[in-house]
Simulated assay, not measured.
Amino acid sequence: MEIKNIEIIKSSGEKVKFSLDKLRLSLKRTGADNTIVNQILDKVRDELYQGISTKEIYNRAFSLLKKNKSHLASKYKLKKAIYELGPTGFPFERFVSAILNYSGYKTEVGKILQGKCVSHETDIIAFKNLEATIIECKFHSEQGLNCNVKIPLYINSRYQDVRANWSKSSKKEVLLTQGWVVTNTRFTKDALQFGNCTGLYLLSWDYPENDALKDRIDRLGLYPITVSTLLTNREKQFLLSRDVVLCRELIEDNFYLDHLGVSETRKEKILNEILQLCNIQTP
């Protein structure tokens, strides 16, 4: 059977035509060279069958990348790694906050703000150039769940209530200029339409184009600790509980690996993987 006729099943249950170009692009994003990419494409192509799941294709490509270079496999599992920040969503808020901090913002997480009508617990307030942005994070720990129009509708009403009272608050010298919704999944068409119409800024895994969550992470080298292929799940959860959300934070806070009883040899491998992943030059 020709590749163009093979249907694959997405995590949502939707059936779509398999695209070799999409797989090639996702592998190229990791920084893998053409030789590695072509080898993986050939092997995956040979193992395709009608009704194969995207998860099965991902697992095969991931294991082949890991055999070549572990830091490439870490980049490839970025989307899955963000799901692994759950299930509460709070580590995702800290992760988004960390991305903003590295982008020149000062952030506060989990603050109560008084609106005109009621008070609101906000996920993140970000400050830059005497302007404030209120950011709400919508985290899904399961694949296939998208943010529908109800989410930006609800968040926009909260933002407008806080904005109506902002000039009376202690931060009145700072202008409240924007509300954001950030999700690790995708927005539906209606959600995007509403956000664009009301001026609410929407940031998802793949939106806006070229400046989406995945683009910002790759550009800044701000990978969550859950991407590591060398740390165990128990070790990742321990680090998250100690507020080590980004891989690059472990370079400075590597004493936590000693607390976990990680051997010197393994510790060196873990830190080397992170240095390569985040493109950090050692002195």
Rank of each mutant, 00 (worst) to 15 (best):
I8N: 01
Y159T: 04
R266D: 06
E93T: 03
D33H: 15
Q50P: 11
V118M: 08
E93G: 02
L222P: 00
F18A: 09
L41Q: 06
T177G: 05
Y102T: 08
G195N: 02
Q281W: 13
S97K: 07
L222F: 05
N5I: 11
K17N: 10
Y256V: 00
L213Y: 07
L85T: 06
V245E: 01
A126L: 06
G13A: 01
A32Y: 00
V118I: 13
V149G: 08
L220I: 14
K189V: 08
A98M: 12
Y76K: 00
E136P: 03
D258C: 10
L65K: 10
N272P: 05
Q193F: 11
K138Q: 10
E235Y: 12
E47M: 07
E121Q: 09
L130S: 15
A126R: 00
G115T: 07
C147R: 00
K168H: 06
E136S: 11
K10A: 07
L85C: 04
R29F: 14
Y102A: 12
K267H: 13
F92W: 05
F90K: 11
E249Y: 10
K189E: 05
R186N: 04
E252K: 13
K55V: 08
S228V: 14
K15C: 04
N148L: 05
K69Y: 13
L64A: 07
S103K: 06
Q114K: 15
E209T: 11
S241F: 10
S26D: 06
Y58C: 02
I251D: 05
F92V: 08
R234P: 03
K4T: 07
E252G: 02
P208T: 00
Q178Y: 06
K17M: 03
N196E: 13
E235F: 12
Y159P: 05
Q50C: 04
N184P: 05
L240F: 14
W166K: 00
N34W: 01
I3Q: 05
P283S: 14
K66N: 09
I8S: 08
N5S: 14
H259A: 08
G89C: 01
F238R: 01
L65A: 12
Q178A: 14
V174E: 01
L41C: 04
S119H: 06
K22V: 08
E7S: 12
N68C: 12
L260W: 12
T122H: 09
Y207K: 11
D42W: 12
L203G: 03
D218H: 15
Q143G: 14
R234I: 12
S170H: 13
Q39F: 09
K28F: 15
G31L: 04
Q39A: 14
Y159V: 09
D215F: 08
P152S: 03
Y49C: 02
I274N: 02
F62D: 01
Q193A: 08
S119T: 14
Y49L: 04
L48I: 03
I134P: 00
F90D: 03
L100H: 04
T107S: 02
L277V: 05
F187T: 11
S263L: 13
T198F: 06
V181F: 04
T232M: 00
S63E: 10
L153C: 02
I3Y: 02
D33V: 14
A191F: 07
L85F: 03
